[in-house]
Design a binder for these strands. Sequence first.
DNA 1: CGAATACTTGAGCCATTGCTCAAGTATACT
DNA 2: AGTATACTTGAGCAATGGCTCAAGTATTCG
Lengths: 129, 129
Amino acid sequence: MAQVFASEIDADACSTECLHPEAIAPLLGRSLGADGARAVGDLFATLADPSRARIVHLLAITEQDLCVCDIALVLGMSVSALSHQLRFLRERGAVERRKVGRMAYYRLVDDHLRHLVLDASTHIAESVA
Amino acid sequence: MAQVFASEIDADACSTECLHPEAIAPLLGRSLGADGARAVGDLFATLADPSRARIVHLLAITEQDLCVCDIALVLGMSVSALSHQLRFLRERGAVERRKVGRMAYYRLVDDHLRHLVLDASTHIAESVA
DNA sequence: CGAATACTTGAGCCATTGCTCAAGTATACT
DNA sequence: AGTATACTTGAGCAATGGCTCAAGTATTCG
């Protein structure tokens, strides 16, 4: 298990009195390190933008793959903006492209992302009720 | 269930030929609308920054609440930067503050967020292996 | 009271980001 | 070949975000 540890603590950094050594001692090796935090941040950044959330959600509820033009129509986005975001998603391994003639069909390949976006949207729909 | 629907489709927007009406017809009412997308985006934006991911992760693995100074020490962040992020998290209902004298103790109150960050960090630790 | 501590907050800075616009590539049609 | 279609990409721009720095509040101590 590739646990990512925090960088070593600079114990003299703080002005002593406010610390609770007994509280933080058990946490010292377990906090997210810089690499892990960046990876977690990147994962959630994928869905942190409304446009990408809509794209990923749409692909998550679709059985077949969709061409850029269809996605643009359904979401009401410009083809250019969509293509930029699809590139972003593709570089992060979230979606895959299948080219047929001059069309490009995209589908969601990251199942973790599918569950995240579907859970989140139902969770939000409930809490708004 | 407060399902959020996409804005109505401007069917004439696209230059006809590339569309797959049979593919997009079943999707038309089910895509994430602007409000839902913003809500989903806000949820994931909470964890989309490495610093916030570390803060939320730390509070997620901690039973008791922690004072600002302790968090700053464990994460190696400046107190000011930390306070800004804690304010961000507090305004979104992710964490709560308990004041004792001149200290402020924070704890995670959003269980959805706790599961998200813990699932994500284990998921990432596995995939890095 | 005044000084120190623990935290908060506003201003400003630099980096990032999501978009539009214009141009570019690749495939299909005639 | 030439044009049209489907998508991609780079440049540039306005908006956002996270940080530092400095100042401010509130509580404690002497």
